[in-house]
């Protein structure tokens, strides 16, 4: 009697096992599909950019597109050169990094190594909130606050220029750079620091000569991600850089970035004209640029993951 019952229980358990197995398989497929979805979306976007962007080159030579400084598609003698737009984008991006990298790494080092737990508890969320400020708001600050300050400081007639855009983008890239660098610095094994301190160095020396170099690959990845953010940002630069499509002559020139050009002009172009396609071509170039930056940061991060 008891034997029979045991047997039945066993059968039930094996049935349950089978069910959980199916369930597990189903869930696995579900998650796999979700994972693949991201790839499909990415591939779809790239396909769209290419298929809409490539017809540009039926009327514009590739050489003109990449080497001419003249972007004026609505002129009677249209020009489709994106070089000055690319240079403008790179100018504000590099400017943003010059500002945000030192500040970001210093802040991350402070958070990871110097700050007391209480201070960190307050500072970290505040920095994260900085990331959630809409870029329109930051752009507006660029017009009404930063612009006049820059104009007064440098004796210019106005402050809608490369520096303004750079500082705004720097502020926007800061949260990314700080939080990833902080993770990297915190992840440096305690033994490194202890060894250094045991050899008689002070904390500053340990931080600069041991901890930060050990975390360098993580910090590099943080910088690259911040750079990706800066290249792709649209609204703040559109509002604060003045949008003059000339090649920047100095850091006080008004410039127009690739993203701003797309944002400004996509609303006006009639469907399927060369101008329309050329904006998608700019989008594709931008996509490749940010993709490369992200790829490099990923490779660096990967290396850093292995090193641990």
């Amino acid at each position: 009697m008891t034997d029979l019952r045991l047997e039945q229980e066993e059968i039930e358990i094996s049935k349950k096992d089978k069910l959980t197995k199916y369930k597990e398989k189903g869930l696995k497929i579900f998650f796999l599909l979700n994972g693949i979805l991201a790839i499909i979306v990415l591939a779809g976007i790239f396909y769209l950019l290419l298929s809409e962007g490539l017809p540009t080159f039926e009327e514009v030579s590739i050489r003109e597109f990449f080497t001419s400084f003249r972007w004026n598609p609505t002129s009677r003698n249209p020009g489709y050169g994106i070089l000055s737009l690319v240079i403008s984008t790179l100018a504000v991006t590099i400017g943003a990094l010059l500002f945000s990298v030192p500040v970001g790494i210093a802040a991350a080092a402070y958070l990871a190594e110097v700050a007391r737990p209480k201070e960190r508890e307050i500072l970290k969320p505040v920095i994260e909130i900085l990331a959630s400020i809409p870029s329109v708001v930051i752009g507006f600050l660029g017009i009404v606050l930063l612009g006049p300050i820059i104009a007064r400081t440098f004796g210019l007639s106005n402050g809608l220029n490369v520096i303004n855009g750079s500082i705004l983008l720097g502020v926007m890239a800061l949260p990314t750079i700080i939080s990833i660098s902080e993770d990297a610095i915190s992840a440096v094994p305690k033994e490194y620091k202890e060894a250094s301190l045991a050899l008689g160095t002070n904390r500053w020396h340990t931080l600069v000569k041991v901890t930060i170099p050990a975390a360098l690959s993580g910090i590099t990845a943080a910088i690259m991600l911040g750079m990706g953010r800066a290249i792709g940002e649209t609204m703040a630069v559109l509002m604060a850089t003045g949008n003059a499509p000339a090649v920047p002559r100095s850091i006080f020139s008004s410039i127009r970035t690739m993203t701003a050009t797309i944002a400004i002009e996509l609303g006006e172009v009639p469907f399927n004209t060369t101008h329309y396609h050329s904006l998608f071509a700019i989008g594709a170039v931008l996509f490749v640029m940010t993709f490369l930056v992200n790829l490099v940061s990923d490779l660096v991060l990967h290396k850093y993951g292995e090193g641990e």
Partner: peptide
């Protein structure tokens, strides 16, 4: 003729 490239394009 075309505008100078130095004209700021405002919204």
């Amino acid at each position: 003729d075309d505008f100078s490239d130095d004209v700021r394009r405002m919204n």
